[in-house]
């Protein structure tokens, strides 16, 4: 554990808490892509199956349970409790276009051809693109509430901090994982446009609005 990874994990937890609080306090999930939230739930379910097979540390196990529980809660709030506020019409990204290529890629490029390892690889690939329905929703409506922008910034920062973690681990521990690094770079790049808008608009107190 190094400072970059810990900061990344904190940023990830922070993002999830912001999202849950936003939905709970406003009693609404307007502006949030349910499809991205379903993809994240699939990511955690397929990655954290190793809760039952491999013990790394109490910290890791607690975080895994936390991510599973909070993503389940988010999907529940969006599709059951506050279903009426869910923005179906704008959330029209076809997730099979992400699920199928990630599954095929995981079957072909993985560290080891076992069920657990292919599922882990699938979850890494899927996580890298799982935000696309959310970014698509923002681009369709042309704007995002500030709280949604803060959520996206914290979520994007998490993988960017992990990139620093991987650089650190390569230099200090000679440890690297090409699949995680490649997917992490893709994931971070997808947020770049958003980061730019966040820094130039939201941090200056303006609403995130895309040029018409």
């Amino acid at each position: 554990m190094n400072i970059f990874r810990f900061a990344g994990d904190l940023s990830h937890v922070f993002a999830i808490i912001i999202l849950l609080l936003k939905i709970w306090k406003t009693r609404s999930c307007a502006g949030i892509s349910g499809k991205s939230q379903i993809l994240f739930a699939v990511v955690y379910l397929t990655r954290y199956l190793d809760l039952f097979t491999t013990y790394v540390s109490l910290y890791n196990s607690v975080m895994k349970v936390l991510f599973l529980a909070t993503s389940g809660a988010t999907v529940y709030l969006m599709y059951v409790k506050f279903k009426a506020t869910y923005d179906h019409n704008h959330d029209s990204f076809r997730i099979e276009f992400l699920l199928v290529p990630c599954a095929l890629l995981a079957l072909v490029i993985n560290h080891e051809f076992t069920v657990m390892e292919v599922l882990w690889t699938f979850s890494i690939y899927l996580e890298s693109v799982a935000i696309l329905p959310q970014l698509f929703l923002v681009s369709r409506t042309g704007e995002a509430e500030s709280i949604t922008s803060h959520y996206l910034f914290a979520l994007g920062s998490y993988r960017a901090l992990y990139l620093l973690n991987w650089v650190y681990r390569y230099m200090v521990e000679s440890h690297y994982d090409l699949i995680a690094i490649f997917a992490g770079v893709v994931q971070t790049v997808l947020y770049c446009d958003f980061f730019y808008l966040y820094i130039t608009k939201v941090l200056k107190g303006k609403k995130l609005q895309l040029p018409a």
Binding site: R5, H12, D50, T54, V56, E112, W120, Y162, H175, D177
Partner: peptide
């Protein structure tokens, strides 16, 4: 070098 399929990150 660690085994690449040992995942100790989240």
């Amino acid at each position: 070098d660690k085994d690449q399929s040992e995942h100790d990150e989240l």
